[in-house]
Amino acid sequence: MTAKIEIRRANKLFDTGGRHIAALENVDLDIRANQFVTLVGASGCGKSTLLRSIGGLEDLSSGEIRVDGRPVSGPGAERAMVFQHYSLYPWLTVRENIRFCRSLKIKREEITSADVEIASGRTDALIGLMGLAPVENAYPNQLSGGMQQRVAIARALMNRPDILLMDEPFGALDAQTREVMHDLILHVFALERPTIVFVTHDVEEAIYLGDRVVLMAPRPGRIDSIYEVPLPPEREQDMKLSPEFTELKREILSRIRATSGMQTDRGMLDKLTATAQPGAAA
């Protein structure tokens, strides 16, 4: 069986004032259909670049990404993306935001009267699923950050995309809201079974959500290691305290520390502590 998403020798060079920086170097990755894959790594490891390349929002310098065997050459409706923020349309209500893709021609051409019915049913279903019914006629800037991300996810799901690409969607939310959103997205995943690629810098989030965790390393951006998450598919918050979970978290965190190139300078730290002692270095 071939993979849903195949990434082959993907390279991406950024030109920053004459200096080339390798955001991605020879990245190879297969992502199976209906899998929840999370990408983690220190900043600058290219995880967002990789995600955006799958979405067709960035061009690779060389190499290839195939979705269902077809090379990606630009963005497409079957690969919906959820951003960290500023992606909602402030001039549209919650309901109108979610229905936005219905105003695009690609969809309208294919619509039969049965589809129209399904479409209006789907809007209601998504509003219900996301708990947005009380605010469906509000504007995005009247909502909290968590509610705004619910709208963004619902809007991305409206097209029934095969692939959902999520770029640190909960990065700006507080810890409590984030837990609620985790269970919500897992619920959506169980219901709709899209293939999800989810970028985060939060290791706990990556393990809790993912079937597989892909750890990337910076300078040059590359895949360091891949972990299968040893948890049952039905996740519960308590599992975060299980030995399997904490063991995997410890392993990934230490690997990130080893690859980030930002180790704490012990000698420097001792010096700092010494100067902070009363009466020291007078």
């Binding site: 979405g55 067709g56 929002l57 630009g74 963005p75 497409g76 409706a77 690969r79 919906a80 993306m81 951003f83 960290q84 923020h85 500023y86 992606s87 909602l88 349309y89 402030p90 001039w91 936005f100 893709c101 105003s103 695009l104 021609k105 690609i106 969809k107 963004a152 809007r155 991305a156 409206m158 097209n159 690409l165």
Partner: peptide, 24 residues
């Protein structure tokens, strides 16, 4: 992000201008 979100929903250039960039 407003533009890219529409692109990943399948918007064409004309639609991006008419439905996202101008209203925004």
């Amino acid at each position: 992000a407003q533009i890219e979100a529409a692109q990943t929903m399948g918007a064409t250039r004309g639609e991006l201008t008419r439905l996202v960039i101008l209203p925004s």
